[in-house]
Amino acid sequence: MFYNLPFIAVAVIAALGIVTMLLRQNLIKMIMGLSLIESAVNLFLVALGYREGGIAPIFTNAPAGEMVMPTVQAMTLTNIVIGIATTAMLLSFVMVIYRKYGTANAQYMRKLRG
């Protein structure tokens, strides 16, 4: 049970994010939902990398023992950077839309349809 706790948290956070994206109509809140999903994926990646008793893969003065593979940590860092770029871009889009349309509601952001 304890080992599955991070994965349960992943499922809960991802579900919250998806529900937010589907049910909220405020664009800012939808992007918050997207960020939640991103956090869930990051947590999932980090949780996958956990090895009981493993040590950080720093070779200088390393104590004896098994080192963890740092791939997932690198992936998480990369995804955080990508996430920052994406979120910044999305929020700036919402800013422009709010200025031009006078609303940040997805229900009214529908000049393109049909």
Binding site: I18, M21, L22, L23, R24, Q25, L27, M30, A106, Q107, M109, R110, K111, L112, R113, G114
Partner: peptide, 17 residues
């Protein structure tokens, strides 16, 4: 078919998911 292309982002996400 035309109303399905509603232009609402929530609908787009709902179809995908």
């Amino acid at each position: 078919i035309v109303p399905l292309h509603s232009g609402i982002l929530n609908d787009y996400l709902l179809w995908y998911l």
